[in-house]
């Protein structure tokens, strides 16, 4: 079933909307959650919670892209779960290496004030807009979908080294971008 038809089911409050969405996107959602959580029960819980979030948010929200919207919701749920697990400290940090990569995007000066999240997101969108298509795909695959360098290399047909180099350059560029926009004092 196409996205438009599924969204229509949500608007008509037909429960088939969830099963149709799962038929179309379950693998994608599970894969995304798996890249962050990697525990089958947590992943399942995360996708189920995300489905409930989507059910509760459509309507009034009418996403332009069901896949992208679903991915955002699943990613947020997965990160919530991940943070919960990290807070418990019963598991090693699955994403810590990846998050530490993003440390490079932060200036080393003291932060005088926390910037608004919307502004930060806007800056990241502007940064993404400034990238060429391949680099943008690499960045999104790495930091949105939390894919490994190896997976990205395979999918983009670049060497792992090339992907690493490109990511390193993009992190540098993102840092500059955020600094320019006053993200850091």
């Amino acid at each position: 079933m196409e996205d438009v038809a599924i969204i229509d089911l949500f608007f008509r409050r037909t429960e088939n909307a969830i099963s149709e969405m799962l038929i179309r996107y379950e693998r994608l959602f599970v894969s995304l959650a798996k890249n962050i959580l990697n525990n089958e029960q947590d992943i399942e819980e995360c996708v189920n919670d995300a489905m409930l979030d989507i059910w509760n948010s459509i309507p009034p929200h009418k996403p332009r892209s069901l896949a992208a919207y679903g991915c955002s919701v699943v990613r947020n749920r997965a990160l919530d779960k991940y943070r919960y697990l990290c807070a418990q400290k019963r598991v090693p940090d699955a994403c810590s290496a990846l998050i530490s990569e993003l440390d490079e995007c932060i200036g080393h000066n003291d932060v005088e004030e926390q910037i608004d999240k919307i502004e930060l997101c806007h800056s990241i969108n502007l940064f993404l807009d400034s990238l060429d298509k391949l680099n943008r795909i690499i960045f999104v695959k790495r930091y949105f979908f939390v894919m490994s360098i190896k997976e990205i290399a395979e999918e983009t047909k670049l060497s792992e080294n090339a992907v690493s180099v490109r990511l390193s350059r993009m992190r540098d560029k993102l840092r500059c971008c955020l600094e320019e926009r006053g993200a850091f004092s």
Binding site: L28, L98, I99, L102, I124, N125, F145, E151, E155
Partner: peptide, 28 residues
């Protein structure tokens, strides 16, 4: 701001960038 904030903010990037990365290949 820390790297966690950036990581969280990336959840809200424009749909078109997510779709772009999903194009042709949605295998993970």
């Amino acid at each position: 701001m820390n790297s966690n904030d950036i990581f969280s903010a990336i959840s809200y990037i424009d749909d078109e960038y997510i779709n772009e990365a999903l194009q042709k290949n949605t295998r993970f």
